[in-house]
Design a protein around this nucleic acid. Structure first.
Length: 286
DNA sequence: CTTTTCTCCTGTATGC
DNA sequence: TGCATACAGGAGAAAA
């Protein structure tokens, strides 16, 4: 499930294999892949004809290819999206929804997505280099624009659960269910604790851990549990061998040995240690 | 306005 | 064996 480190691995692959090349033809074949492109799939394909890719950029889980005009091709991988660079005669994947051909007759770029939560869209690039359709997303912890003190201040005034805040991409971007659980385990905080009940240093520590765990995952090529996530060459990451919380229900906590638990939160699974991360006391009825 | 819930999708695993 | 069900979850629309 691509979160920031996995998307960054894909961005680097695109930087190496696609930037500088000239698109001669784009085929949009999936019925849902262009649903966030307001003008529709035909318009998207037409406007991707005869353009040069000048950069591959990212904010949080959003990825985009800057084109030589004033637009960027926004790529979101959703749950299962892949950007694959492959020979044009490679067998077509079952869930391939878009294909790009280049003037150098080199390998094709393909967008493959089994669960179709991902998608492609064109959006104007703003002067600050961020596409309009990504402007509502907050900077991620690896950007110069990231202001952790400001994020801590905004979190401190929220009465919602801290895990919910970590997953809110308009507060800080790039963190998904896996790295949220890892950061909370490292910080020894239960995800249902209210932001407002935590001290600013604790909130800062959680964000520091989120940064660190994503940096470590990136160093290992990202996290993957199955064949759904691969980089542009088709290789998977290995960080899942280093997870302490996510998916660890029923196994011993790496810190204290207690059996890890799984709980439902926000209609998703959350993994934590009952001893290191005690549940908050129930909110007093008001 | 802010915050929370619902919904989109398909392959894999599990249970009867 | 076959069918039904649960599960995975990012993000935006809809609801509260």
């Amino acid at each position: 499930m691509p979160e920031l480190p996995e998307v960054e691995v894909v961005r680097r692959g695109l930087e190496d294999h696609v930037v500088g090349r000239h698109v001669t033809r784009a085929r949009i074949t999936g019925v849902r892949v262009a649903r966030r492109h307001d003008a529709g799939p035909e318009d998207l394909a037409a406007r991707l004809h005869d353009v040069t890719v000048t950069a591959a950029s990212r904010r949080g889980k959003y990825l985009w290819l800057a084109l030589d005009g004033e637009d960027a091709l926004i790529v979101h991988l959703g749950m299962s999206g892949q950007m694959l660079v492959e020979p044009a005669d490679a067998p077509l994947e079952k869930h391939c929804h878009a294909r790009f051909d280049f003037s150098d007759d080199g390998p094709q770029l393909r967008f493959v997505d089994q669960r179709t939560f991902g998608g492609l869209a064109l959006s104007p690039l703003r002067p600050d280099g961020i596409p309009e359709s990504v402007a509502h997303i907050a900077p991620d912890p690896f950007e110069p624009a990231y202001d952790q003190a400001a994020v801590v201040r905004r979190m401190k005034q929220r009465d919602s659960a801290v895990k919910r805040a970590l997953l809110d991409q308009t507060l800080v971007s790039g963190i998904g269910n896996i790295y949220a659980d890892e950061a909370l385990w490292r910080a020894q905080v239960h995800g249902e604790r209210l932001c407002s009940s935590l001290t600013k240093p604790t909130l800062a520590r959680i964000l520091d851990h989120a940064h660190d765990v994503m940096a470590e995952a990136l160093g290992q090529g990202g996290t993957s549990f199955d064949a759904l996530y691969v980089n542009v060459n088709g290789a998977s990451g290995y960080f899942d061998r280093s997870l302490h919380a996510y998916g660890r229900a029923g196994t011993q906590c790496d810190r204290c040995g207690t059996i890890m638990r799984r709980e439902q939160f926000m209609n998703r699974s959350s993994f934590s240690c009952p001893v290191c991360q005690p549940r908050p006391r129930r909110r007093s009825p008001s």
